[in-house]
């Protein structure tokens, strides 16, 4: 099968993450995460709670909470230095300009005592992408229109509490896109929204990213959402990437046992003879309590003593898995 070549190969990827780790004291919460995203490419990052997907995003933004350290390398096209190890002053120039992020909870991410138009204008003034307040204010109204808020002029004068959840998330998206970033990170942007609002929001993110050829990193626990929005997917469990590849390949012919289990458990239309769903036994361990070797071996039906050693990566970097007993290879 021919793998669809990345359109960005010619110009180089927008984001290159290599051997990213996040530690708290001696405990590894994220380990050996590496991936690239090209211009206009949409990469999904899926995983359950404790998989390290949100920590990975925060590490990219340089927003890890106090006490957590990141290691490895994060390179952004157009930024000469490695983002890890860059000081806060220089990072602040990158954040909101070259890379921006939409968070899950729009109410806590917006300033409750500032009109939304001013909040959109602020990010442009801070980075100096507009010359005057008036120009930034006009650009803010344009942006609110682009994220399809009704009556953007009036909307710009509203406070966050006057907006619905979906409208607030559109404002967040307008702020994130204000400086035309090369990379947009969305962390569960639609989890708190209703089904119909979610569908509109997903369409909007996809369209706006395509319009400006923005690279998109989309983080979610919902497999159906990832498959709707993204072209490629990265599956995380226990702080490691266990499988990656084209959405279609990974979701139709998963190789890692965890990916297989996750897809089976989320497909509510497939049941056994008693009408029961297929499950992954056990529960996701707490951060730092995952086993050595293969992180999934304590819940894996195919685990053997071999799994006490960390599985090697099989396949090219952008398309492979880390499992000693992959699906489709008989033990």
């Amino acid at each position: 099968m021919t793998h669809v070549p990345d359109t960005a190969v010619a110009t180089g990827p927008v984001l290159t993450v290599d051997d990213l780790g996040v530690q708290v004291g001696p405990v590894n919460l994220v380990q050996g995460v590496g991936f690239t995203i090209g211009s206009g490419e949409r990469l999904g990052l899926i995983g359950e709670s404790g998989s390290g997907k949100s920590l990975t995003a925060l590490a990219l933004m340089g927003l890890l909470p106090e006490g957590l350290r990141a290691s490895g390398s994060i390179r952004l096209r157009g930024v000469p230095d490695d983002l890890l190890g860059t000081g806060e002053r220089r990072l602040a120039k990158v954040r909101g300009r070259t890379v921006s992020m939409v968070f899950q909870e729009p109410m806590t991410a917006l300033n409750p005592v500032m009109r939304v138009g001013d909040q959109v204008a602020e990010v442009m003034l801070l980075h100096g992408t507009r010359n005057s307040r008036a120009e930034a204010a006009a650009a803010a109204v344009d942006l609110l229109d682009r994220v399809r808020l009704p009556d953007p002029r009036a909307m710009a004068r509203a406070f966050p509490h006057q907006l619905s959840g979906g409208q607030r998330q559109r404002v967040m998206l307008a702020i994130a896109l204000a400086n035309d970033p090369a990379l947009l990170i969305c962390d569960e942007p639609t989890t708190a929204l209703d089904v119909t609002v979610q569908a509109q929001m997903l369409d909007l993110i996809g369209e706006l990213a395509a319009e400006r050829n923005t690279a998109l990193l989309f983080i979610t626990h919902d497999l159906a959402v990832v498959a709707t929005v993204c072209q490629r997917v990265l599956v995380m469990y226990g702080g490691r990437v266990v499988e990656t590849g084209d959405v279609y390949d990974v979701f139709t012919t998963p190789r890692h046992r965890y990916t297989e289990g996750l897809i089976a458990a989320s497909d509510l239309s497939v049941v056994d003879g008693r009408g029961r769903l297929r499950t992954i036994p056990g529960a996701v361990p707490n951060g730092g309590e995952f086993p050595d070797g293969c992180v999934f071996r304590t819940r894996c039906p195919a685990a053997t003593t071999r799994c006490e050693r960390t599985p090697e990566w099989s396949g090219p970097p952008g398309h492979g898995f880390a499992c000693w007993h992959p699906v489709g290879e008989d033990r």
Binding site: H221, D222, L223, L262, A265, T279, A283, V284
Partner: peptide
């Protein structure tokens, strides 16, 4: 709940 636990 997480997807793998939801089914359980």
């Amino acid at each position: 709940l997480d997807v793998s636990v939801r089914a359980q």
